[in-house]
Amino acid sequence: MAALHQGWAIQTRVIQALIIRELTTRFGRENIGFLWVMAEPLLFAVLVGLLWRFEKGPQEHGVSIIAFVATGYLPLVMFRSTVQRAMGSFSANSSLMYHRQVKILDLILVRFFVEMIGHMMAYLFIATVFYALDEFPWPHDFGYLLLGWSYYALFTLTLATIVAPLSEMSEVLEKVMPVTTYLMVPFSGAFFMAEWLAPDVKAAVLWSPPVHAMEMMRYGVFGDAVYPHFSFVYTPAWCLPVLMVGLMLCRHVRRVMMVE
């Protein structure tokens, strides 16, 4: 038990140090520094939101269109950038393996945390500003909102633990990953509620774990203005076995990893 406690203390210390290191390498200490981490998702969500606002009017299916785009886009961009940054993250950081307390999984966790924190900050920022402008509702139920975020984050982390080791094993992945994440957009649940779709399309998208997470988040924000479709067990039941496979792949890659 004492060993477990000590191990936990070391890992939290290491992850903190790695997060600081990641933020300084990526954003430096100049001007707004680490706040850049939320700048990119923020710009994305606000500009696309405004575009849709002027194209389609203030509301769609009875909910504010800016709020709808922001709630959909931010988790999706978190997923895309985490997966993108997971690729090649082991070889890019192999020199960290000089320090035994840094574990291979820390490299994925750190990049994931940075993306997640950045995108959640952007979410909070947009929600606050547009709430003040009366374009974003007060969340109906924070429980559903947070649980949906956690499920989306779990799915993101799961895919990152698969993509990171595979990218070390095959170079093809790097070429096909951008188009794959693009093709995944319809299965991310970002731009629709399942209820709005034709029955067979609806059944198809509900095979995708992030759709459940997204529906849950949207219900947390919009409440009864939307009619959500989700299962509490589907996303974790899908992610946990895949995560196990990912962890085994990471372990395998660590065993054969060559460090200069």
């Binding site: 290191r21 300084t24 390498t25 020199s95 000089y98 320090h99 460090v259 200069e260």
Partner: peptide, 13 residues
Amino acid sequence: WPLGFGGGFQGSL
């Protein structure tokens, strides 16, 4: 950690 010429540092920091 092994002390040699390479390894253990982040070059951009």
